[in-house]
């Protein structure tokens, strides 16, 4: 446990030291999305009855920030440590693969949740949002950030160069988040794309998270949470297996 605690604290301290880049920058990015999309679409798009588009958009932006920043934290920390070689500082001490897993995953989740909270706070002046179902909201934010923190770990361990990590991010993570209903409800899509969206686990994260605010969603939140939790479990087991084998870390 001591190893976990030290590694977890080190990961928190790492992003805290560059918080301008790791927290302030993504909050600003989300704010820009909000300003532009709400300006363009406020009058044209109505997803749920009585919910203005800006209000609909905010939970999506918050969750997108949570997910992207959780991924960014573990993936960039690991690739940097591997590229510079200082990963040996973590590999030489008696830290188990389980401690390694939980430290990187939870630190990434903390970063994701902190950025999400920041985005939520700066968007408050635009539309006052009530949180109808706080427990659902927290459940989706936490599992979502843990999933992306774990995915970031896999990407950071797999990638041998920065461009490989960028490819993972641009060709897998970005499409899955953008096509998950951050900016729209999948009910507005043609039937084919609606069906495709249902294979995207990110869709359930966003949809369930949005349910936390409005108490309305495209899919029942219990089903979404079950799917998200199953994804988390499968991914975690696969990652633990990877770490135990020493894949790309201990040759």
């Amino acid at each position: 446990m001591a190893g976990f605690y030290a590694l977890f604290s080190k990961e928190l301290l790492r992003f805290w030291k560059v918080s301008f880049q790791t927290m302030a920058a993504p909050v600003l990015t989300a704010l820009l999305y909000l300003l532009i999309f709400s300006h363009v679409l406020e009058e044209h798009v109505h997803v749920y009855p009585g919910v203005p588009y800006t209000a609909f958009l905010i939970p999506g932006l918050v969750m997108m920030s949570v997910l992207q920043n959780a991924f960014a934290n573990s993936s960039s920390s690991l690739i940097q440590s591997k590229m510079t070689g200082n990963i040996v500082f973590v590999l030489l001490p008696p830290i188990s693969y389980g401690e390694f897993f939980f430290a990187y995953m939870l630190a990434a989740a903390v970063r994701g949740l902190a950025v999400g909270l920041g985005v939520f706070l700066v968007t408050l002046p635009f539309v006052p949002l009530a949180v109808r179902e706080p427990l659902w909201l927290v459940a989706f934010a936490v599992t979502g950030s843990c999933i992306l923190g774990t995915l970031g770990m896999v990407a950071g361990i797999w990638a041998e160069k920065f461009d490989q990590l960028a490819a993972f991010q641009n060709f897998i993570i970005m499409p899955l988040t953008f096509l998950s209903g951050v900016f729209y409800s999948i009910h507005s899509l043609p039937a084919f794309w609606q069906a495709v969206s249902r294979f995207n686990p990110f869709f359930y994260m966003i949809d369930g998270f949005r349910y936390g605010f409005f108490g309305i969603s495209d899919v029942a939140p219990s089903l979404s949470l079950a799917i998200v939790a199953a994804c988390f479990l499968a991914l975690s087991l696969a990652t633990l297996f990877l770490l135990r084998s020493g894949y790309k870390l201990r040759f």
Binding site: A2, G3, Y5, A6, L7, S9, K10, F89, P93, P94
Partner: peptide
Amino acid sequence: EALRIQSGYFG
């Protein structure tokens, strides 16, 4: 900090 962190890894 580096030395404190490294100590932490060893408990």
